[in-house]
């Protein structure tokens, strides 16, 4: 039995997330691990209070993200048969952390933005919070073009 039997990788379709996914897939393949992709639909704050119907505004965005997640899932499944997808709605770091607390993966792989040349800039805010608060080991990886 491998130690990293269950690996969680939050995905948001950005460059750091893709890099994190690549590393997670590599580790899952080498370990024969189960991989879970978690996507959190972050409801844009600017739309709150606009008085528009959530279904009119948000449903197409939700559908588009679901399609993208399915596309990513299909691609990963070629390499990792034991892959599944989960979705949540809300504040990404809170939802990711709640998922971690509930499922207790052996490892969380997070892509990060890096410093962008600003000496004291921190990780991407989501990755930073997960690294700080996760009860499980977290493997952070920067997007290659930012390394």
């Amino acid at each position: 039995m491998t130690k990293f039997a269950n690996i969680l990788v939050p995905v948001d379709f950005g460059a750091p997330s893709r890099r994190g996914l690549e590393l997670a897939v590599d580790l899952a393949r080498r370990n024969g691990a189960r991989l879970t992709l978690l996507h959190v639909f972050d409801v844009p704050v600017s739309y709150a209070g606009m008085g528009l119907s959530p279904t009119e505004l948000l449903a197409p965005m939700w559908d588009a993200e679901q399609e993208e997640l399915d596309r990513v899932l299909a691609k990963v499944r070629d390499e990792i048969p034991e892959v599944s997808r989960e979705t949540a709605r809300g504040v990404p770091w809170r939802e990711i952390l709640a998922f971690i607390e509930q499922r207790r993966p052996d490892l969380v792989v997070m892509g990060t933005h890096g410093r962008h040349g600003v000496p004291r800039a921190l990780l991407g805010s989501v990755a930073e919070k997960i690294v700080r608060l996760s009860p499980c080991p977290v493997l952070t990886v920067r997007a290659e073009d930012e390394a």
Binding site: L23, A121, L123, R142
Partner: peptide, 12 residues
């Protein structure tokens, strides 16, 4: 974690 230019595995 903030400064490293390569993957960092944080053990807790």
């Amino acid at each position: 974690v903030n400064r490293m230019d390569r993957p960092v595995f944080v053990v807790r």
